[in-house]
Design a protein around this nucleic acid. Sequence first.
DNA 1: TATACTGCGGAAATGGGGTG
DNA 2: CACCCCATTTCCGCAGTATA
Length: 301
Amino acid sequence: MPKQRYIERYNAIVEKVRKGRCTLKEICEYLSIKSEDRDLNLTISSRTFNRDLDEIRDIYGIDIQYDRTQKVYYIANDQVANISNVRLMEAFDIFNTLKMSEHFSDFILFEERKPHGTQHFYPLLQAIKSKQKIKIVYRKFSEDENTERILLPFALKESKGRWYLLATKINDTKLKTYGLDRIISLKVLQDFFYSDFKINIKEKFKHSFGIISVDEGDPETVELSFTRKQGEYIKTYPLHESQQVVFENNEEIRVKLLIYVTYDFIMELLSFGSEMKVISPADLQEEIQESLEEALKNYTA
DNA sequence: TATACTGCGGAAATGGGGTG
DNA sequence: CACCCCATTTCCGCAGTATA
């Protein structure tokens, strides 16, 4: 897979242009410096450079434009593009590092987090971009047998260090999530689809915690009280994008979320143990309480 | 008019699969 | 496992086009 070289190049170009406006010459110089650093050859002709700009626009959504009057390249839509794209680039970087690691495996020891499924990352991205159907062999979380299915891919989503494919089955409008690490094999079909129903992925997941998508009901306002120590941590790594600090003193930090109360969210809450208390809503409070009491029974009985 | 962009053909590199 | 063949990917350079 010779993908890794040009993805590094994309990253290097974006890195450079992000730092400030620059001329083509400066970008080329930057690329040759990078080449020496990484012992690669990233230098390219202007033709390839232009193709790269198209690709970067396509994949990252970063629009690099040329300003004729000043003869410089710059990022046109940086304010919108920023966060999610940096994230995406990080993902690509990790993906590449993992790829590269095969060469260095004796010298660099990666955390054994099982990056299974990342090999499907790029083909999936291609399929999503060009709206091609895919055929996958999938091993369900709960079952042992593998099933084959044809899907219409829509998006990739990251949650807790894992990647998921959001896709629908044929003749079905319900969006499902598939863990990339549970996709045994993947084939991109030469069969294109037209999505006649609009799925607004971002909107759909705006109020969900992880990867469980909710089709019915409304998100709820959840208020949580953390101990000072845990609260500081939560402030730096918010549970959810809607998280707001409503109150804090020396003992506790309270935050508010607007979120679908799903199974995985509850599990997350339980993992805080005594460091966290649910303030509202009442039924969630009860549920957590019951779970903890159940857990306690395992030791007192 | 100078500079940047684009389309296209072909060369080189890469990877998969088959064969002995 | 080494080797070769073929398909695909990636890239370059040319030549023509667009833009200020």
